[in-house]
Simulated assay, not measured.
Amino acid sequence: MALSVENLKINFKTLEEFKSFKEYGLEELSMLEEFQINMVEDNASSPFYGIYYGDRLAARMCLYVKKDTDRLLPTDSGEYIEIWKLEVLPHYQHKGFGLKLVEFAKTFNLPILTKPRVKSHTFWEKMEFNPLSETSSRLLWTPPATHKKIS
């Protein structure tokens, strides 16, 4: 079965699907509160993306496009993407779902920041993410065309 990333609709069906994720993992990964806020605000564009396996939501993440107002990133771009709360249900882990979500985020061709969770550093290293700085817990991926040369 081919995996494809979909922009998740902000509706009650998706809210119910998100509840199955809350059963697994950390409370901070639940996304339910963020999702409910977006429902209340009637947000037309959803920051939520996911992969269905059959009729079941198997993996999801939030993607936020942000402005680099503090110029923290080692790129010339004025924007970046933050991957927030990437999560794959246990039954679907190690089957390429997380990889597919990150590859999708990379298609925006913007630098990507994330804060790795629960023993996921190896995954992010395989995806070519590096520490933002020596002291930062956040990881950064930069598209090849935006890398600055270090002098």
Rank of each mutant, 00 (worst) to 15 (best):
I81A: 08
F123I: 01
R71F: 05
H121T: 01
D42H: 10
E103H: 08
T107K: 15
Y49P: 09
W141H: 14
S136R: 06
R60D: 02
S20G: 00
L63E: 02
L101M: 12
K13S: 13
S30P: 14
Y53W: 09
A58W: 04
V40E: 13
R60H: 07
L8C: 09
S30L: 07
T75R: 00
E87P: 04
S20V: 00
Y24M: 03
T69K: 09
I83D: 10
S46L: 14
Y24F: 03
V88Q: 08
F48L: 06
S77W: 00
L99I: 06
R138N: 12
Y24V: 04
P47Q: 07
L113A: 10
V5H: 07
P116H: 06
T142V: 10
I150L: 12
H121G: 02
L32Q: 09
F97W: 08
V65H: 14
D42P: 01
E125P: 01
R138V: 07
V88T: 01
V88K: 05
I51Q: 00
H94T: 07
K106S: 01
K67V: 04
Y24E: 13
Y92F: 15
S45N: 03
A44R: 10
S77V: 00
K22Y: 05
L8P: 13
M1N: 12
T114V: 08
H121E: 10
L57D: 02
F129I: 05
K19W: 04
T122M: 13
H121N: 06
G50H: 11
L140T: 01
M127W: 14
F35K: 03
K126S: 06
F104A: 01
T114F: 09
S4E: 12
E41W: 13
M31Q: 11
G98A: 13
K19C: 06
S30W: 00
L140P: 04
K100S: 13
T122R: 15
W84E: 15
L132D: 00
L29D: 03
T142M: 14
F35T: 03
G54M: 11
R71T: 05
S20M: 04
R138Y: 07
E79F: 10
V5T: 03
K95N: 14
L110Q: 08
P131R: 01
S77P: 00
S45I: 10
A145I: 01
T14C: 07
K19F: 05
L57T: 01
K95L: 14
S77T: 01
L26I: 05
I37Q: 08
Y64W: 12
L73A: 07
P47C: 09
K13M: 05
P116F: 10
K149P: 04
E17M: 10
R56V: 15
L132Q: 03
F123K: 14
P143A: 05
L73F: 05
V102S: 09
T122E: 14
E82R: 13
E28S: 13
I10C: 07
C62V: 04
Y49A: 04
Y49Q: 02
E33T: 12
K119A: 11
I10Y: 11
S133N: 02
E33Q: 09
L72T: 00
M127I: 06
Y92P: 06
L101Q: 07
K66M: 03
R60V: 09
T75A: 06
E17S: 09
P74S: 12
N109H: 14
T14G: 09
K67N: 08
F108N: 08
K13N: 10
E23N: 07
L99G: 12
V40M: 13
D76T: 04
E33N: 12
